[in-house]
Amino acid sequence: MIWFALRRLMSAVPTLFIVIFASFMIMHAAPGGPFDGERQLPPEIEQNLLAKYDLDKPLLEQFYLYMEGIVTEFDFGPSFKREDFTVTELISQSWHVSARIGISALTIALLVGATLGCLAALNQNSWIDYFVMALAMTGITIPSFVIAPVLSLFFGVWLNLVPSAGWGGGAIPNMILPVFALSLGPLAVIARLTRGGMIEVLRSNFVRTARAKGLPEGLVIRRHALRAGLLPVVSYLGPAMAALMTGSLVIERIFGLPGLGRYFVDGALQRDYTLVLGVVILYSTLIITLNFIVDVMYGVLDPRVRASQ
């Protein structure tokens, strides 16, 4: 088990390094620098500015300094376009917004998705099953950036039940619509995965054994079937996290939330390379770490996987 975790870690670390290195190089290969303004700077001043930000050094050295800053001081460098801020400041101002929305959405997607999937599997080919599957199909095909404005218009503007946009300092009513819109996609996938997993498990020998020895149906499902039936959902946690992060790019924009996603998109549109790079590194680290944890967890949960490693 420890060997398996170590081996996975040995591929996770280089992956992360490759992502950071590639993003850094692409960003610095991009035409135009941070100080290309309308006004041509005198060469001496430009030289000083470049020296201040280490931009006059060879690219590899710049990369080394950048990495050193991140590892030792969690410093992602200065923002190119928001001049008085460092990327770290911008990120630390906004990450908690994205984190709150993302974690709430993931929780809802897991709870509701798994419940719906179980219901569908236990009532296979009934109207419940068809209803859940239709709902899942809708959630998968209709993108969050379509659902979000419609929700905002309907519940926010017409019915006036909840605020149609804005963060409001993180008040619960302000969070309802964004979290709901964000969770729909992963919720649909989780419902489908749970249904598939449960249907397969309910037909398997160990469930038949559990029933044969006279366990009540509730216990069979809770103690035996669910554990195995939810395995596909565990392996989806990594992609779900990625989906939530990309989803929050549009959700934060639509609802005007001051989160990381909005900084990322604004940064991308304004070519604020350091800001974009910082957010990408943060997100990649999160996703790669989560994938690593999920893989190891999967080995713990499913003895068959461990045996084949």
């Binding site: 591929s11 490759i18 991009a30 990408v280």
Partner: peptide, 19 residues
Amino acid sequence: DILYSIPHMFVFIILLVVF
């Protein structure tokens, strides 16, 4: 496997921003 664990949407965005 390595390419899989990279968040694709962010790569698209970086590439589109730059090029």
